[in-house]
C-alpha cells in the first residue's frame, strides 16, 4: 500500500532537487541564492551534528572548532599557495576528522553534560590558539581570494553538501552503526554489554561528523571573502546546528533539515521586518514558543513514522 506513495515521494523529491540546482539560472535575485546557500550550509551542519547529538545522544558543542579548522586550513592554502578552496575542502574535512579522532580519545571519557562542556571548551581553546599564532594571522582579518568559485558555484556546492549529508544520514540510520548509536543513546552500558562496540562507534561518528563540519567550514569564507578567528571559532556556529536539530526533532531523519530550513531564513527575515535590535528578542521568543509547542521536534507534524 505504501509502495506507490513511496515512489511518488521519491519522484517529487528528485524534481524538487533538480529545481533547486537550477535555481541560479532562473534569474532569481542573488539575495535568495545567498540565503539558500547559507540554509544549505546549516542543513549540512545540523545533519552531521545530529549523528552524534541526536542519534547517540552526545551533545557535541565543539562543532565550530572543526568548522574553523577546515576554514583556516583552506584559507591558508588559498592565500599562500593559491590552492582553490573547493579543491582543498575535502582535505580540510579530513584534517578535521583526524583531529576529532585524536581529541575524541580524551573527550569520550566524559558523558552527557560534561561532554558538552569539554567540547565547548574546544572551541574556545582553538579560538585562543589561532588568535595567538602569527602564522595564522595572529587574530587579524585575512582575505582568502575566491579561487575558482563564484556565487553560483558556492550555491551548488552547499546544496550538494546538504544532499550528501542527507544521504549519509540515511545510510547511517540503516546501518549497524546507526542502530549502535541509538542503542548508545538508550543506555550506553547496556549497549556495551550486548556487544555494541561503543567506543569505536562514538569515535567514528565524531570523526565523520567533524569531517563534514570541516568540509563545509572550508567553503564558508568564500561567501564573504574574509576570515578572522572569531568568525569561525564562534560558539554560535556550534550552537545553531544544535538548536536547529532540536527544534526540528533529533529523532527524525529530516528533523535537522526542517529545523535549519526554518530557523535560518527566519533569523534573517526577522531583522528585515523589524529593522532594529529587537529581532533578537523575537527570535528568542520564537524559539521558546516552538520548543514548548512541540518538544519532540517540529518534524513530528510532518512525518508520522520516521521516528527512531
Amino acid at each position: 500500500m505504501k509502495g506507490k506513495y513511496l515512489i511518488l515521494i521519491y519522484l517529487v523529491g528528485i524534481v524538487v532537487i533538480m529545481l533547486l540546482f537550477s535555481l541560479p539560472f532562473l534569474g532569481v535575485p542573488s539575495f535568495y541564492l545567498t540565503l539558500l546557500t547559507l540554509t544549505y550550509m546549516y542543513i549540512s551542519l545540523s545533519l552531521c551534528w545530529n549523528w552524534l547529538g541526536g542519534f547517540a545522544g552526545y551533545l557535541n558543542l565543539g562543532h565550530a572548532a572543526f568548522f574553523g579548522v577546515g576554514a583556516y586550513f583552506s584559507a591558508m592554502l588559498a592565500i599562500y599557495y593559491k590552492v582553490p578552496q573547493l579543491l582543498s575542502a575535502p582535505f580540510a574535512g579530513l584534517l578535521a576528522a583526524v583531529l576529532a579522532l585524536g581529541l575524541g580519545f580524551a573527550a569520550f571519557r566524559f558523558r552527557g553534560v560534561y561532554f558538552g562542556i569539554v567540547t565547548i571548551s574546544l572551541v574556545f581553546i582553538f579560538l585562543i590558539f589561532v588568535t595567538n599564532l602569527d602564522a595564522l594571522g595572529g587574530g587579524r582579518t585575512l582575505f582568502p581570494p575566491p579561487l575558482l568559485s563564484n556565487n553560483i558555484v558556492l550555491y551548488q556546492v552547499m546544496l550538494g553538501s546538504a544532499l550528501v549529508t542527507s544521504i549519509v544520514t540515511r545510510f547511517i540510520l540503516k546501518s549497524k552503526l546507526g542502530w549502535g548509536l541509538i542503542a548508545i543513546r538508550g543506555d550506553e552500558d547496556t549497549a556495551a554489554c550486548i556487544g555494541v562496540p561503543v567506543f569505536r562507534y562514538k569515535l567514528l561518528t565524531f570523526a565523520l561528523s567533524s569531517f563534514f563540519a570541516g568540509l563545509v567550514g572550508a567553503i564558508y569564507p568564500l561567501l564573504t571573502g574574509v576570515i578572522y578567528p572569531s568568525m569561525v571559532f564562534n560558539v554560535l556556529i556550534s550552537v545553531n546546528p544544535v538548536l536547529m536539530s532540536i527544534l526540528g526533532g533529533t529523532t527524525y531523519l529530516m528533523g535537522p533539515v526542517i529545523g535549519a530550513a526554518i530557523l535560518l531564513p527566519i533569523s534573517y527575515y526577522l531583522s528585515y521586518i523589524l529593522m532594529s535590535e529587537l529581532h533578537i528578542v523575537l527570535y528568542g521568543a520564537l524559539l521558546i514558543a516552538l520548543v514548548t509547542a512541540q518538544p519532540k521536534g517540529l518534524a513530528k507534524w510532518l512525518f508520522k513514522e520516521t521516528r527512531l
Binding site: F21, P24, L148, S149, N150, N151, Q156, V157, L163
Partner: peptide, 17 residues
Amino acid sequence: AIVAGVVAGVGAYYAGL
C-alpha cells in the same frame, strides 16, 4: 552524488561567468 555535484558545480561555474 559527488560526481553529479562536481559536474553541476563545474558547469555552474562556467554558466555563472
